[in-house]
Structure formats: C-alpha cells, structure tokens
C-alpha cells in the first residue's frame, strides 16, 4: 500500500467535505485530533457516530450513520475510524448513499486494513487510501511536518 505524493495531494486538494465515521468527542482520542486538525484546515467535517448521535462536535451535529446525513450536502470523502472488520459495511453504506453526491474517496485510518472494502470502493470508481492518516499526510505534503524535523520525502527547489 504505497501511494504517490501526487495521488494523496490530489485527494486532499479536491476534497471539501469529509464524513468522519467513528469520530470521538473525547479530546485526547486520535479521531478527535484528526477531525480537529482537518477542521482547522478549512475542511467541513460531518461527524458520524451512533454513540454520540445528536451531540454537537466542532459546530456540526453528530449523525448516527452515513445514511442520516442531510441530503443536500455533497460529501467528497468518507474517513473511517472503525475496526478493520467493520470497514466493509461503512463502504457499502457510503456507496449506497453518497456516490451520487460527490463522493470520490474512501480513506481508512492507520490500522484500518480491509481488502474487500478497498476492492468494493475501487469497483465503484472511488479512490482508496488505506492504513494512512489524512492529518499526517496533509501535514507532510503541505509543509507542517517539516516544521518539526520529520522526513517528508519532499525535495524541491521551488518557492
């Protein structure tokens, strides 16, 4: 599972709204960290988690499922914070409910690896990123990790 910088950069540049499935409202959980970061970078986050349904996270209502998201919102990415074996039904639901509303990308977080979910999403014409974190990739590709001495792999003589 290697993804070129161009592939990841393209996804992150063309995504505006992200449904975060399994996001936590606990400020020290990784999913909260990721959502908070992406919100700071001007993505619109739509939290999805049946446990916290109806509560508010980062000024948005938390929805119990992808199917419950308001019909008038375009969603380009579904970011999955679930156990690997639970990724497949999330992808099925995403394809059923969001494919006609702008969906382009299924993103599975670090540790979330499900080949069947990946194959299904690809078959539906979606881009897939698996076992990666959009926060870390965004920080790496757009200069933020560079500020703390991480190996970004980016060599460029351009401004």
């Amino acid at each position: 599972m290697t993804y070129s910088d161009r592939y990841l950069r393209d996804i992150l540049q063309h995504t505006r709204t992200i449904a975060t499935v399994g996001v936590s409202t606990n400020p020290i959980r990784p999913s909260y960290f990721v959502a908070r970061y992406l919100g700071l970078k001007n993505y619109r986050l739509l939290p999805v988690n049946p446990v916290y349904a109806g509560q508010i996270l980062f000024d948005e209502e938390i929805y119990p499922s992808l199917a419950d998201l308001p019909q008038d919102i375009e969603v380009q990415m579904v970011d999955i914070f679930r156990r690997s074996e639970q990724a497949l039904p999330v992808v099925e639901e995403a394809i059923d409910t969001l494919l006609h509303r702008g969906l382009t990308t299924i993103w599975m977080q670090i540790g979330v690896i499900n080949q069947a979910a990946e194959a299904l999403a690809k078959k539906a014409g979606l881009k897939v990123v698996m076992n990666r974190c959009p926060k870390i990739e965004h920080q790496r590709l757009f200069g933020e990790l560079r500020k703390a001495g991480f190996n970004t792999g980016i060599i460029s003589s351009k401004l």
Partner: peptide, 27 residues
Amino acid sequence: FNLQEVGFIYSRLTNPTVAVLQERVAT
C-alpha cells in the same frame, strides 16, 4: 499547545533552521 497542529511556538522546542537539519539527518 495541544499538539493538534505542528508549528513554531518557542525555540526551546522547534526552530525553522534546526528543523531543516533534523529533516536532513532523518532523511
């Protein structure tokens, strides 16, 4: 301060010149 975003706060922690060296050696 919450480590949710990476950036420069104070040079005891991070500094742009030092960060270049860190990435250079890490690479």
